[in-house]
């Protein structure tokens, strides 16, 4: 035999999608939010995003080189983590904050668990919470939109309250404008302020079939339903609901964080449960918690439950119905009873 053919077992064809193409789609979907953020907060927002992306990629590269793991940088997942991390920072943070956050996200949360697909918690979110608890002053140093920001040098505290902060403090609600929140013309983290830009990205991801709308929609719907039923701060039901939906990091969380493949359920039933769980926890933290915002914490809590949720809500075995086992149990029981009585 002169010529050797490749021998593998079927299937022999594959779709063109790869991890890299999916991550590239996610990066594209996050662009509108970045553009609006630069418009609102200035070039410093862009600079911080670049710092976060570069340090995430660098830490991934260095770590995998150090422990001689095959180089995963080309799959672009570290770049996605970098952008998400930056989107969770106030624009006034010092430059070393995203660098430390990137180290925590990539090395501690992602690589120590085995790299892409193996981590339990969303790296960007875990890093945000880590930074928030370690440097609370920097991490809640929100600036008003369109205030002059130096590109690189230190920013002094110029605290502006975010809409969620105002609500928590019981402050002047009158200063809140839903239209501004939709467009991102308000205080907050770099990438979370413009609901419209984030929704545009979400629509792109759904259209490209990168994510299914199940988690974002159930997440947003459960927040909407609870808030419309229990308004606060003297607002009417719908305004309050709008405030809850557009405020804080909800859109960013629901569209880009809760849908993170690695840390969300793969079963359809599980995705609904996960979305509802995130929504209820977010509302509870906002209503009763010590912090003004609960998106990060609620998603991280749900992250920990993913495996259990998937197993509990796995689809019924082909050829059986979902509750067949339970039905049979009760049928057997009632038969037994009939037998006893007769």
């Amino acid at each position: 035999m002169d010529k050797r053919f490749i021998m593998t077992s079927s299937p022999h064809v594959r779709s063109e999608d790869s991890t890299r193409s999916i991550m590239l789609d996610v990066l594209i979907a996050m662009l509108p939010a970045l553009v609006l953020s630069v418009y609102t907060f200035g070039a410093r927002a862009f600079m911080l995003t670049i710092v976060a992306v570069c340090s995430c990629v660098l830490f991934e590269y260095l770590y995998c080189r150090l422990i001689k793991r095959p180089q995963p940088v080309g799959d672009l997942s570290a770049a996605v983590t970098g952008v998400l991390l930056a989107y969770n920072l106030p624009v006034a943070v010092p430059i070393w904050i995203p660098v430390i956050g990137s180290f925590f996200a990539i090395v501690i949360v992602k690589q120590l668990y085995g790299g892409i697909g193996k981590n339990v918690f969303n790296p960007a979110l875990a890093a945000r919470v880590f930074l928030f608890l370690s440097w609370p002053v920097h991490m809640s140093n929100f600036t008003a939109p369109h205030s002059a920001m130096p590109l690189l040098s230190r920013v002094d505290a110029v605290v502006t309250a975010t809409p969620m902060g105002i609500v928590k403090a019981g402050g002047a609600i009158s200063g809140i404008n839903l239209m501004d929140m939709l467009l991102g013309n308000t205080g907050g983290c770099i990438g979370e302020t413009s609901a419209l830009a984030l929704i545009a990205g979400g629509v792109y991801l759904v259209a490209r079939r990168v994510i299914s709308p199940r988690i974002p929609l159930t997440y947003l719907a459960s927040v909407a339903i609870v808030s419309v039923l229990s308004p606060g701060a003297g607002l009417d039901n719908l305004t309050w609901m709008g405030l809850q939906l557009l405020g804080g990091g909800l859109m960013l969380g629901a569209i880009f964080m809760a849908t993170d493949y690695t840390t969300s359920p793969v079963t359809i039933g599980g995705q609904y449960v996960y979305g509802i769980g995130c929504g209820l926890l977010t509302i509870f933290i906002r209503y009763f918690g010590a912090y003004s915002e609960g998106v990060s914490f609620s998603i991280l809590i749900m992250n920990a439950l993913v495996w259990a949720i998937d197993m509990a809500f796995k689809p019924p075995r082909y050829g059986t119905k979902r509750f067949e086992k339970i039905e049979n149990y009760f049928k057997a029981k009632s038969k037994k009873k009939d037998g006893e009585s007769s």
Binding site: V13, T19, P72
Partner: peptide, 19 residues
């Protein structure tokens, strides 16, 4: 290479297989 063989296959838990 129609089956796009790669050196390091890696699960990213996207769940497409389940769908």
């Amino acid at each position: 290479n129609e089956d796009r063989r790669v050196e390091e296959p890696k699960c990213i838990r996207c769940g497409r297989c389940v769908q």
